[in-house]
Each structure stands twice: as C-alpha cells, then as structure tokens.
C-alpha cells in the first residue's frame, strides 16, 4: 500500500515537472522494479504527444554529436528535448561505460533538456528492453521531442524503427561500398539518411552511393495495412510502397553544418506521417509488437513459475547429453511432461 502510494507520488511529481522524480522513476523502470509498473500505468494516459526520433548508425559515425547539434537547434525553436542515449552492456561483467554525454556538453545547464544514458543490459536490438518505457516516461513528462540514440549499430539493430516515428540513419565516409548499401537492415529502416563528417574525403562518394541505392526502388512500408479504413476493403497480400522519398542530408555535426536541413527534413517527415495516416499505422504496429513481447515474457514467467525450479536446468542437461532435442524439450516443458526427473541417465 505504501509502495503504491509512493509510486503515485513519483508519477505525479514527474507530471508536475520534477526532474529528480523523473530521474528516479527512470531508474525504477530500468530496474524493472515491480512498483514502477504502477507509475507507468498512471503516466500512460499522458503519453502520445511527443515526436519520437531515432538516431542510429555504425559506431563512430557521429550519432552523439548529431544528437547534440539537433537538440540545440530544436531548443532554438523553443521545443523541449528529452534524450535517451543507449550504449552497450559488457556481456562479461554486466557493467557498461556510457560515454554519450561527452559529446553533449552544449546542452548542459538547459532545463528544457533532459539527457539519460542507458545501458543495453543484454538486449541485442540496439536498445535496452526498457527503452520504450523510458521514452514513455519522458513523453508523459512533457518533452516535445524525444531523441533516442541507439548503440553503435551494424546491420540488424533495427528495433528503433518500431519505436520511433522518424528514424535517422547516420553514415560517414569510408565505411562501406555499394554492396553494403543494398543489404537489408539498417539502411532500409531510414526515413532520413545523414552523411555526417561531410567535410571528409570520400563524402561525395558515400552520398552518391546512398542516392543510387535509393533510386533502385521505392521503399516498402513498415509492414501492415493502409490505415484503419482500408482494412475491410482489402487484406493486402501485396507489398505496400511508401510514398515518402528518403532524403540524403550532408552534415558536419561538430560544426553544426547541415542541421537546419536535417530539421526541415524531420518536419517534412512528421507532416508526411500525419497526412498519410501512417502515424496511426506505426503506432498500431508498435503497440502490437510491444503487447506481444510483454505477453511472451509474462507467459514465460508464468510457465517457469508453474514448473519445478529445477525443470529448466534438468532439461538443459538432457539436451546437452543428447537425450532430448530442443523442440521436443519445448513441447515437454509446455505440457509438463518431463518424464523421470533426472532423465534416467
């Protein structure tokens, strides 16, 4: 009871703009403290107002510097900015060095900005498992724009596209050739492509390669159907192409060059999402994906709680001894049919 009311107090304090409470609630959410769920439930009805922008790309392309420059430009327009910067957790120690603030010193002392570093804590999709909830807390706290910087991403860390309204993929000269550019994955999720460090040799090559890739064909829309009204009309088996033309923007983030162009592209993309109704589609997909993920986790927790504590370890041992194959093991665990506790040798 007292825990519940303390979480209510924390949620109320966050809504009233208390930055300490905001920081503390984010910690609770990150730690998956059971009572943080209560606060998230209270905050949920206050979410949905922020523009969520993802910034991703390979390590060293300048994501943090770009976030710094972009946040400054947004502040000049009078918009408040929440920043979530994710860095990898060491798989060996569970610790992390979170260094994105080093590039964000220009934002210090501005109460219209809130920066939070997050460790990925074992998640592989470029974000932490709780990043979505942390974004939601910042949304409820009233930040107009939330910039989410992923870990230095390779080719498959595409989770950000599901969370953000607009995904900015940052590239830099000298990182890849034309074959890299047509591979599926990180470039495919870009709503806006940025070639940062555009004053470096080879930048024009990178720009040309990316433009050429974009000309190979229109991008597929991020799954799903064409808004609620179209659902009854057609269950689409065909791919849906996006009418949005992905711009390639050159920046030198450390010198704040090209940032106005990037901001204009962000504005155009937000307008595009609203005009085409895609924003509703994306929201729906995000809610569906999140619901399924949470359900999966909850079902797993429930199943494991119902089985004897040693069931999992014993099954693992039996698979290791080649007595059981993984698929049969899953069926056995689901049906609670683990004949003979020690696997009968």
């Amino acid at each position: 009871m007292s825990a519940t009311s303390s979480e209510q107090t924390l949620a109320t304090a966050v809504l009233s703009g208390d930055r300490r409470a905001l920081a503390r609630l984010i910690t609770r959410v990150e730690n998956r403290a059971p009572d943080a769920l209560e606060a998230l439930a209270i905050l949920h009805s206050h979410t949905g107002r922020a523009a969520i922008v993802g910034v991703t790309g390979a390590p060293g392309t300048g994501k943090s510097s770009l976030v710094n420059a972009l946040a400054l430009a947004l502040r000049r327009r009078g918009q408040t900015v929440g920043i979530v910067a994710v860095d990898p957790t060491s798989p060996f120690s569970g610790g992390a060095v979170l260094g994105d603030r080093v590039r964000m010193v220009d934002l210090a002392g501005d109460s219209g900005v809130f920066i939070r570093s997050m460790a990925s804590r074992g998640s592989l999709g470029g974000l932490a498992a709780t990043t979505g909830d942390v974004v939601r807390v910042l949304d409820a706290a009233g930040f107009a724009v939330i910039l989410v910087e992923t870990v230095g991403a390779g080719q498959s860390e595409v989770e950000i596209a599901r969370m953000a309204h607009t995904t900015v993929v940052v590239d830099a000269p000298g990182l890849g050739d034309e074959v890299q550019a047509i591979k599926a994955g990180i470039l495919e999720i870009a709503d806006i492509l940025v070639v940062n460090k555009a004053d470096r040799p080879g930048a024009q090559n990178t720009v040309r390669t990316l433009r050429a890739m974009l000309e190979l064909g229109h991008r597929l829309r991020t799954g799903g159907h064409h808004g609620v009204r179209a659902v009854a009309a057609a269950v689409q088996a065909e791919p849906v192409f996006d009418s949005w033309t992905v711009p390639v923007i050159e920046t030198v983030a450390t010198e704040h060059k090209g940032i106005d162009e990037l901001l204009a592209a962000l504005d155009r993309h937000q307008a595009h999402l609203r005009e085409t109704g895609e924003i509703t589609d994306r929201e729906r997909q995000r809610v569906e994906a999140e619901l399924l993920a949470r359900l999966r986790e909850a079902l797993l927790a429930r199943l494991l709680a119902e089985r004897p504590p040693e069931a999992l370890e014993k099954t693992i041992q039996r698979i290791l001894r080649r007595e059981l194959d993984p698929n049969t093991a899953v069926r056995a665990l689901l049906e609670d049919d683990l004949s003979s506790p020690d696997g009968k040798g």
Binding site: R19, R20, A23, R24, I26, T27, T89, S90, F92, S93, G94, G95, A96, V97, L98, G99, R101, V102, V105, A108, G109, F114, I115, R116, S117, A119
Partner: peptide
C-alpha cells in the same frame, strides 16, 4: 573501465566539467 568490469554502469562525462554540469548530470543519471 575497472568499475565497468566490476559490473557497474559508469557514466563518463569527459573533460572540463563545471560543478554545475556535474550536479546536473548526477541528477539526470540518478
């Protein structure tokens, strides 16, 4: 690096921090 290897989450802020910047970062990072 040593604290990372001990399983802690280390927020590294870099050089030339003012006392105000340090307190603000400590608050935001909890």
């Amino acid at each position: 690096r040593a604290l990372r290897d001990a399983g802690m989450e280390v927020i590294y802020t870099g050089l030339r921090q003012t006392p105000e910047m340090i307190a603000e970062a400590a608050l935001q990072e909890d």
